[in-house]
Design a protein around this nucleic acid. Structure first.
Lengths: 200, 200
DNA sequence: TTATTGTAATACGATGCCGTATCGTATTAT
DNA sequence: ATAATACGATACGGCATCGTATTACAATAA
């Protein structure tokens, strides 16, 4: 077994493989059965690990889940196509893929459901999802402003939130005929009509 | 006991009070413990009713919850203040109250969590929440257009969706209600800046 | 080597919920 | 009155999970 301990400590060090297996199993099961349906036993079975091994590392289900989410990093790649619209389209696609995946859905549902009772989850999600996302939007908008595509006083966060919110709502609840893609484009067109220097 | 049966049927008719109690208890508990944590026993206890009475009416938890949500009607009162801005502020306040309440949050979380496996819930939510909301927005915007406050080609559904989408996203990512309120206000201000004939 | 800790496997009692059945009572139509 | 149905209460066996404890073996640091 390949295990490393950077610093000394008496007995046998904890296995990195087991750590990974536990966290991965937690995420997998979270995606499948949701927060409430998550059981330590199932995680242990999925990870090929004894329950004891989990209980030794984490003192509560919340602690374990928090660590698993913290450990899982859905990276957003900042696009740089040279066009505001293309950049936004690309980043929205990425964000949608993350949020609408089984894991993304369950995570989000968990956050909403527990945010009032376990605020720590909301903090984690804020740190792991929202901040990077806004950062990306900010970069994209700054570039567009530098290119003169966008008025300098545009609130990037606001527009970003409006668009992602619409995207979210559309994909989740849209029983309508109009294609989401064109709807999004129409929305963005409307949003930027007053603040872009030239038509899209 | 006061119970009424409009038409004949041999034995003792089902109690309307019991119906109400069951559905109300279901909604209350849904708000408190969420979908997964919901147990028939707890509902029965809360409603002051035997488990059998519930099993006699509903064959599954899903059926019961669907009925409870269907039965619960968060009514939006269409304001008519004579001012577009005041109307929107009022209706936004109502919508936020519904969505940000414990029941609203749990309902939304439930929808997200189950949308892929129990799409019926998404339909109910669409019918009970989204459609009426769009209707209200439509009426308000039509009035504003008639008053000349608003450009006639403004898409009421789009703005409504943008706002509800933002509200939705805010609930997801930002659990503090107060910040959501003011943020929503700012968004509304931005959205209407370009399309209103006079400053707000 | 030797002591220490980690691990997997298993067992345990406790708890909570499930869905069903039964019972005695209450309510209604005929 | 009688039949039919609803009601609350209670009990049941079954199941899943909890969190802990015990065991026997593996890995590792001193």
């Amino acid at each position: 077994m390949i295990s490393q301990t950077t610093k000394s400590s008496p007995g046998r060090p904890r296995s990195t493989e087991v750590n990974q297996a536990i966290l991965q199993a937690t995420l997998d099961l979270l995606a499948e059965v949701g927060y409430q349906g998550l059981s330590i036993e199932a995680i242990a079975a999925r990870a090929g690990v004894g329950k004891t091994t989990i209980y030794r590392r984490y003192h509560s289900k919340e602690e374990l889940i928090a660590e698993a989410i913290e450990h899982n990093r859905p990276q957003l790649v900042i696009p740089d196509t040279g066009s505001l619209w293309a950049d936004l389209e690309e980043v929205h696609k990425q964000a949608a893929e993350i949020d609408l995946s089984p894991l993304g859905r369950q995570t989000i549902a968990m956050i909403i459901s527990l945010a009032s009772t376990v605020p720590h989850f909301a903090e984690i999600y804020w740190k792991k999802y929202v901040i990077p996302r806004r950062k990306v939007a900010s970069v994209i908008f700054e570039r567009a402003k530098a290119r003169g595509e966008l008025s300098p006083e545009v609130d990037a966060d606001l527009i970003c939130d409006l668009m992602t919110g619409l995207l979210f709502k559309s994909i989740l609840f849209q029983p309508e005929t109009e294609q989401i893609e064109s709807y999004m484009r129409r929305a963005l067109d409307f949003l930027l009509k007053g603040v872009t220097s030239k038509s899209l």
